[in-house]
Amino acid sequence: MALKSVTVRAVQALAPGESIWDADHKEAVRGFGARRQRDAVAYVIKYRAHGRQRFYTIGPHGSRWTPEKARREAKRLLGLVADGEDPADEKAQAALQAADTLRRIADEYLKHARKKQKPRSYAETERHLLIDWKPLHSVSVFNIRRRDIAARLAEIAETQGAVAAGRARAALSAMFNWAIREGLDIAANPVIGTNRPGGAQGA
């Protein structure tokens, strides 16, 4: 382990298993470093949380993460630590949210809807969620925005008509309301506030 400025030259000079920790300049961030494991170099921070020393990987050295960008991110993360938060917990939560895609939540909602809706209504709900909203299936429900929904509604209205788009909108809104009641910490139903197909505004 060496204490020295984390620079591109210093990072590239690391041998497998070696690490450096930021020091020796006015912008140095204590706890920020870089380490090489095999062929890859990763920017990391070390800190104490819950009474234990922990390591958190910011990201690999490369096109996104330069020493300067990684140092700024390290400063932000260590600020969270100073406020009593644990970046590792934040990362785990983000991973869980990423796994909650629209398709996954739609599948869970459809199990509920099958028990509550009449067969004809359920078939329509299933069609809207699994076919009409398929372009958003891979997106986390935490990342779907009103603009995403409005754009897709416009596409449905153009290809299938305003009535079909309105029903697709209602099915998605019902799914989000159910998901929120199930405990998903979504700030708000993103369907609310989008225009109803045909030009009217509505919830």
Score class of each variant (00 low, 15 high):
A203V: 12
S19P: 00
G166M: 10
D22T: 00
A174G: 07
I149H: 06
R146K: 12
T194R: 06
E85Y: 15
R48L: 09
V191L: 03
G33K: 06
R35G: 14
L3N: 13
D107E: 14
Q160K: 15
P197Y: 08
I45Q: 03
L136W: 02
R181L: 02
A92F: 06
A28Y: 07
G33A: 09
M1D: 04
R38Y: 08
T125Q: 14
L110S: 08
K134C: 02
A10Y: 07
H137W: 05
A179K: 03
E68R: 15
F32W: 02
V8F: 11
G59R: 06
R9S: 15
K134D: 04
Q117C: 05
I156P: 12
D148V: 03
Q93S: 12
G17D: 07
I186P: 01
A74D: 00
A150H: 09
R152A: 07
A150T: 13
G166W: 12
R36I: 02
S121A: 14
S140G: 11
A98V: 06
H128Y: 15
A13C: 05
A88Q: 13
L77E: 01
R30H: 13
Q117G: 00
A171K: 06
S173L: 00
L130V: 00
I58T: 03
A74M: 00
A165M: 14
N195S: 15
A203R: 14
G202W: 11
M175S: 10
Q201E: 13
T7N: 08
K116Q: 13
A49T: 01
A15V: 00
A162N: 15
R48A: 14
S63G: 05
R146A: 09
I192M: 11
V6K: 09
V139C: 03
A123W: 04
